[in-house]
Design a protein around this nucleic acid. Structure first.
Lengths: 338, 338
DNA sequence: TTGAAAGCGCTAACAC
DNA sequence: GTGTTAGCGCTTTCAA
């Protein structure tokens, strides 16, 4: 049962002033080496740990960073979170993480709470397209970086995967299957990333001279169950061969499951492309052709940028956002399903 | 650019004392209803948010909770983390989460840091069997709950899965395969959970009259790559049929991959059991027979217990740890690989 | 029912 | 090179 040791306790024991102890411990230049050593040694011997709360209060700044994820249940975010945590820890910041559950109202509430906790910055995965959250953060003068999904290229610092390219690459690769229909199974249409995926898909169709047909795009398909059902539905209306680009590996595995139940050959009858490159699937047959998204690095980069913004605030000049952007390129992983 | 509104600002505008404003906002009984209403309304109108850091400092307690995970890269932990976050958020606590990277030294360092941040409690996934971390937490008088892996049943509050039962159930189920060898592929032997799995395995062999042979237990097999290689090695030394119990679904998928490459039939030639019930695999063929571990609920329960300990501290009586334990039973999920 | 004043542990401006 | 002092924003006695 160890009583908390305070600066005052150290000072009394050593018969010097609190100030001197504080300065010695904080590496201030105007303390003699002899004294400093003495003080540091004694502090260590009694296990002194400075009270961060008092320090934060006094200095009007903390070494905590808020991380607001839109949905932590989704594994994609967990990899990103890992990258963020790692980088923040290395820079001496502590992450406080909270989940907005894709709820815009809650997102604002959380920003207010984090502001009350006086976080040094915020990493935000926006759950929608409005600017309210960014405005509030700006209002509070809290530096922030948007991770995955951005709102306004001119106003925000952000780190994203080039979502257009994700679907563009998929179409490009599949376009070699001569004459195939290429379906595109998208996620929730309100998601910025889903909107960009669709743009990339259409751009690629145009570039490769493929004419999109009526029901090639299916929106709002979620998860494995969603993929499973959409594939069954697709098979009712279309005869193989055809190709399918999925928003995620989850959707893709659901589709593959439906195909296997009907003993349809992959990729000769139906070709499937996923997106995410979920690690565990690399050992699973048929090995999924997918697009790798650098999840962890995205988290790391976002955290790095935030730390930069926190530690080099541009009080006078407005932030040069062009330096505060990072667009990661996806990478095609060719395996067995297309 | 909103200046921070302080209690003082409210008081000045309303021409009353800071004390009165504080009391009104905190629901103190000795403020007239009229005043209270007036004050609350005005505070809301100027978007007043109390400075948590000042509050925490003054009250010598915070509403943050430290979460120390041994390895956040592992998806198991991410589900648990999700459960923890959810429960803490619902109780008004903010999680600060950090990763010990299975390093005992770092774990102690992190506890010291969290202590400095004056966290209200700690949720800890111990990375080893020593008592140093628990002792330090006790020393600092920080309430804590161990999640997954416990040290001393008499001294700690903990939430675990019954790891013995995980392997016990697997052996029991496999024992119906008449005369099969039953291999047990364990994780790092220093992990408490791995030690318990081994105990359960041996207990079940004894109970079902199966005599363990020399090389049935393989320790320190990690991940898909590990499973893949161990299976190749196993096939070199043993002729099917046999059965294999894996520490995790990851190991199991690696093994299945190796079997498929050699065109060995599952489960007729080699039967495989996983553990974890990773969601994505439920749609993947061959559908893995596994043991479900209630990851998210485990995190929730651990957080619930911690909140209980924080809010009802037993200053006088020693904590009744028998109420501070929760052992979740695993559940057999029979699918296609055994 | 209200308010004045003290102080949580620390840092920083300033005087010596 | 060292110490004195003020004060960060809030809560909490205690007196009015």
């Amino acid at each position: 049962m160890q009583e908390k040791v305070r600066l005052k306790d150290l000072a009394e024991k050593l018969n010097i002033s609190i100030t001197t102890v504080s300065k010695a411990l904080n590496g201030h230049p105007d303390i003699s080496e002899k004294r400093r050593k003495e003080i540091i040694e004694y502090a260590a011997s009694v296990n002194y740990v400075p009270n961060q709360v008092a320090k934060n209060f006094r200095q009007q700044r903390t070494n905590t960073v808020g991380i607001i994820l839109s949905d932590n249940a989704y594994p994609y975010n967990s990899r990103m979170l890992h990258g963020m945590e790692e980088t923040l820890a290395a820079s001496g910041y502590y992450p406080i993480f909270v989940d907005s559950h894709q709820d815009a109202r809650r997102e604002l509430e959380l920003i207010r709470s984090l502001h009350a906790l006086n976080v040094a910055g915020v990493l935000l995965t926006p759950s929608h397209n409005g600017r309210e959250s960014c405005d509030l953060l700006t209002n509070f003068q809290i530096p922030y970086v948007l991770a995955r999904g951005y709102i306004d290229p001119d106003q925000d610092a952000y780190v994203v995967v080039d979502d257009r390219m994700v679907s563009y690459m998929s179409v490009k690769y599949l376009s070699s299957y001569d004459g195939n229909k290429i379906f595109f199974i998208n996620s929730m249409e309100r998601l910025p990333s889903a909107q960009n995926r669709l743009l990339g898909y259409r751009q690629a169709l145009a570039d490769y001279g493929i004419k999109e047909e009526d029901d090639w795009v299916i929106q709002n398909c979620i998860g494995q169950q969603g993929g499973y059902e959409v594939m069954k539905q697709l098979l009712r209306r279309h005869k193989p061969p055809f190709s399918v680009i999925c928003y995620s590996d989850y959707v893709a595995t659901g589709m593959i499951c439906a195909l296997q139940e009907r003993k349809i050959q992959i990729p000769s009858e139906v070709a499937i492309m996923g997106a995410d490159n979920i690690a565990i699937l690399s050992y699973v047959k048929p090995r999924l052709t997918t697009i790798d998204l650098p999840k962890k690095r995205l988290g790391q980069r976002a955290a790095e940028m935030l730390v930069e913004m926190i530690e080099h605030p541009s009080n006078d000049a407005p932030i040069d956002f062009s330096k505060m952007r990072c667009v990661f390129q996806p990478r095609l992983i060719i395996r067995e399903t297309s």
